[in-house]
Design a protein around this nucleic acid. Structure first.
Lengths: 190, 190
DNA sequence: GTCTATAAGATGATAGAC
DNA sequence: GTCTATCATCTTATAGAC
């Protein structure tokens, strides 16, 4: 039973959660301290500044998300199933207390971050596009998809779409909206 | 020559600008005061609380955006031209100091707002969908568009897409990305 | 590693003079 | 309407004891 994580990881977990729910400028070290059950000063030991924390969280989030994408790719699914799995990852985020993709949130608050962090964000978006393009290419070979533009263009469109769909669904507060959007989108690719 | 607006409108203009650039939690009354050239206390005379301000700004933004959409509709353009005009409004926002749509930004910071304001946000998104659906329906009659799902579904997808495209383009910092996305998207509708 | 204590400044907001 | 003055609170961050 490993119910007690180490403090550093707990801080990062709560930090991730808070950014996804409230945004970087919407919480403080006091919020993390309370949630983790330590004092504010202890957080500074692990992450001297708030930006150090968010940068570490971003790095881990991207790695974790890439792992999940890889897991979908390795499942025994046809290309349509894999694309549905992709949208499913964004759906899970919404279902989890109406969180937003960390990178969407941070892109909205871009003003608050230095170039170093901005570059990390774009790696995330590009990795998404690349993953989707692979699936689209596979699906086209199988005759599962039918669209008139290149796989690269279509992939970029789908990533932009899912980011916007997540944002609007969260605003509406009804996961059904996301499901309808994704379902329609999948239909439009046939 | 009306170079000097009244204070109230100046506060709202700067307030709008700051939310679009930094987000609601990314600026303070001090920032507005400095930009407008008044003292913090004077802002409280016009808008007792920060939420009063953002609510007024949101209302005006929505009205203004609806007017712009109406103007596009009244232009002598075919349905494709009108849809391009729609995307163009989001492009203009990006070009204007890399601003984000006020409602995308506020949707990201949803946690900070009461239900009253959240409802206003959704009116904006629905109005966008409705406008796009009209244009798609017109275009389908003219044979200008070709897509397999309903106009309502396609309109919702396009609005989600443009929100995501704006967010990702801003993160990348290259307006060319937005242009490519929109161009591909328009192609995919033929 | 975590704590107490504290700093130095920002923040949203109010009271009351002009 | 706008100002000065002030408030209570929050915020990020540091120093130093344990």
């Amino acid at each position: 039973m490993n119910t007690k994580k180490n403090t550093l990881q707990s801080i990062m977990d709560i930090g991730l959660q808070l950014v996804q729910e409230r945004g970087y400028n919407g919480f403080s070290y006091a919020d993390i301290a309370e949630a983790v059950g330590i004092r504010k000063a202890s957080i500074h030991y692990h992450f001297p500044s708030k930006q150090d924390l968010v940068q570490a969280v971003l790095l881990q989030y991207r790695k974790d998300f890439m792992d999940r994408l890889q897991a979908v790719k390795e499942q025994d699914l046809d290309s349509q199933g894999k694309l549905t799995g992709f949208f499913g990852l964004y759906r899970e985020t919404l279902e989890d207390n109406a969180k937003l993709c960390l990178c969407s949130m941070m892109a909205a608050e871009l003003h608050s971050f230095p170039e170093e962090i901005r570059a990390e964000l774009n790696l995330f978006f590009r990795a998404n596009e690349s993953w989707v393009e692979d699936v689209l290419a596979q699906g086209q070979e199988e005759g599962a998809f039918n669209f008139s533009i290149s796989t690269g263009e279509q992939a970029k469109i789908l990533v932009a779409f899912v980011q916007g769909a997540q944002l609007m669904t969260r605003s509406l507060g009804d996961i059904h909206y996301f499901d309808t959007l994704v379902s329609s989108c999948m239909s439009s690719l046939k």
